[in-house]
Design a protein around this nucleic acid. Structure first.
Lengths: 412, 412
DNA sequence: AGACTTTTTCCAAGCCTCGGAAAAAATGGT
DNA sequence: ACCATTTTTTCCGAGGCTTGGAAAAAGTCT
């Protein structure tokens, strides 16, 4: 009925514990006093909460000879306890699955990658594949350190190229798979007895910067330009998740009515100009959509040709940049001019794209606002997705721990 | 530093009081028991809070012979107390200022409207004009009821055509005014000793539905099509406010690269096809932007001509619908397919626009998603803006009351 | 070794909300 | 007319969390 729910002491406790955990995510190491200052809690309350979290096993006190020449009683250093949990970020892409496992402190423990032809696979096979991948990661992590062998995962995030359900339960459609509507979260959770969330890779990306001090309070967009074109948005401090498609389908925002043919069946989408296949066909004079994915090496070669003066290649990249620029201009007009984090093969060809991108923004945004927006390059897309999935998982875990707060029953 | 702030008993109290007030905004009349059920608070807590709010003068108990044939002790009816405050919604448009004053219960007390040539006015004159307008409204309201004469306003919302500062302090630019960067909130607040917020009219519109049960939890867009084209968004239960321009500049989302000339100086904006002036020049074969605002009567006549079979007029409306449709398709691709509340002169010509709008959405959104989205007409734009401004003001007032909670010192 | 400084812990107090019991206010049956 | 029943409201003690100040702890400086 009512939109506003009540609040009580339990929620106060959970909220404040989460505030403490959130602070630790940002600073790595802190003291009770610093927690008090960062959160606004009284020193008594901050100290009490820290004490509880240490007893819960979420935090631990470490001896660290900071030895800054300060007088007075030195603060006890507190850090997140890696042993409190484990999360995995898995990634489903065309012809490949990969993943990273991290401990509760966010330290990566292991990564793995596996080429595999997914296209014809059923949902069960895919879930089995992911379960195996997760098992491998746990195995690899166990080799690294001898403690807590065979420990289960607490939370798994699956990042998928393509459209996912907004309830994080599975895949609606993916270019990596022939089948549609594949349920992932429930069956994978049952197999691994871990919480599973399935999200679109691009819309997840802003999570990678969740605790980065230089991005705190900043709204920005992540832009993937490669075989497809996708976007993630951080607005008002929250990562945007649509109700319907879960993602900002930037690549399918119409660029030119009745324009070039896109994989989605429509005409004139941004992707139909800026996707790898679009740049390729434009440079090679085709109009069809290539049946195969253009290898990264081929795209790199094409970029080099453009740099060497190949006119068709130059024009193809310029047209791609123009479509991206107009798309960004449209987004900026709607939302706000935003800094852009760029990744994918487009980041490698940024020298060819940037002038056209900025010109496109200038021509399409009111007062050309946003044409000078910062462009931050992150060439390693996989790392970005792993960072994002891990942050998403850890944030969710923090929330659960803050709520449940199982105080460890200590001996004597 | 940290993004998460602490919570304490004060915030719990404020939050729960706000939950009670929010419930009352939705139901008009309630009882302590019903409050408990709606908010999730225990009956004791709900009763205690209601008691306090009654003593604060925000709520009052009324005798109402509901006389439904129920046994048991009848609940005491509670309603918002109109005398607890007064808010005004003012509107600045091209050649006109208008306003409505309402009591704390949201009941309109008076409205006024005044044709005036604003274009060359300075900021001081504009503020003086608004102050006079507000004074008139207070006067009119005092005539209606004899109690509390000369009572001041608690909160004023100024809705403006054009771009406003995101801190709600004033106008960046408006088609109604020649001057730019006009400070409104501070000087008007000083004159009237009331809190003042300045917002874009279109982005404010979703607030009109804030407490409407049929819109609760629903994301939707409000679309104004008239002399300009603007949009308001309600996303994830919040009315979207950009950091930079405060508004979704839907009218200036690019429709066709290098297309028709727009008032903003760019080419190909949606407004350059769908604004009154754009439809007019297209129908009359011009390419220039008319120097004057096309009167509503002329637009109505043009629509009638189109209905009577005038080909140029039909084509002009169809082209406008197409641009709107592509614009919506682009928005839907980014955000989500959303129901649309349509207002402005475009609502009067919806029969001419709708087919082209839906075709445009179908051609530009992925899978044509959103082409069948509900289109809700609200022909009275002023009423919509007043509703929205009033709701915005009352919501802000509720928040302040819930926080401050000045318990009235009762005699004896 | 003693004075000083800074961090941490401890304790009583204040606010909320909660749950159950008691009171209040009306209806229905005998 | 009176008593049992039903439903709403109020009252009261308990529990939980934060607060502020005092006391304790753990170093540095002279």
């Amino acid at each position: 009925m009512s939109r506003l729910a009540k609040t009580d002491a339990d929620m106060v406790r959970a909220h404040n514990r989460l505030a403490v955990l959130d602070h630790l995510r940002r600073v790595e190491v802190t003291t009770r006093k610093a927690v008090s200052e960062a959160t606004g809690l009284s020193v008594s309350a901050a100290s009490a909460i820290c004490g509880t979290l240490v007893r819960c096993g979420l935090l631990e006190e470490i001896e660290e000879d900071d030895r800054s020449i300060r007088r007075g009683r030195p603060g006890k250093n507190l850090v997140l306890c890696g042993r409190a949990g484990r999360v995995a970020a898995l990634k489903i892409a065309v012809g490949e699955v990969s993943g990273r496992i991290s401990d509760y402190a966010g330290r990566p423990l292991a990564e793995t990658r596996q080429k595999v032809d997914l296209s014809g696979q059923s949902g069960e096979t895919l879930v089995a594949l992911l379960a195996t991948l997760a098992g491998e990661l746990v195995e690899l992590a166990a080799q690294g350190s001898q403690e807590a062998p065979g420990k289960r995962l607490d939370k798994i995030v699956v990042a998928v190229q393509g459209k996912t359900h907004s309830d994080l339960s599975g895949i609606v459609w993916s270019p990596a798979l022939k089948h549609r509507d594949i349920e992932i979260a429930a069956p994978l959770a049952a197999r691994l007895s871990a919480d599973v969330s399935v999200l679109n890779d691009c819309s997840l990306m802003p999570e990678a910067f969740r605790w980065r001090p230089d991005f705190t309070g900043l709204d920005f967009a992540t832009l993937f330009v490669g075989f497809g074109v996708g976007m993630g948005l951080r607005i008002n401090g929250a990562t945007f998740q649509g109700k319907h498609s879960s993602a900002v389908e930037f690549g399918h925002i119409n660029h030119l009515p009745g324009g070039a043919l896109c994989r989605c069946g429509n005409r004139g989408c941004v992707e139909a100009y800026a996707g790898d296949y679009a740049i390729w066909r434009r440079a090679t004079g085709g109009e069809e959509i290539p049946g195969h994915r253009i290898p990264d090496a081929d795209m790199a070669a094409l970029a080099d040709a453009a740099r060497a003066g190949d006119e068709a290649a130059r024009a193809a990249f310029a047209e791609a940049g123009n479509a991206i620029g107009y798309g960004l201009g449209r987004v900026f007009t709607m939302i706000d001019p935003l800094p852009i984090v760029l990744t994918g093969s487009g980041a490698q060809a940024i020298d060819l794209l940037e002038p056209a991108i900025r010109r496109g923004i200038r021509e399409s945004a009111v007062d050309g606002l946003g044409a000078e927006t910062p462009l931050i390059l992150r060439e390693d897309t996989d790392a970005l997705v792993f960072d994002a999935g891990t942050a998403f998982a850890l944030a969710a875990l923090d929330g659960e721990f803050a709520r449940s707060a199982a105080e460890a029953t200590e001996a004597a």
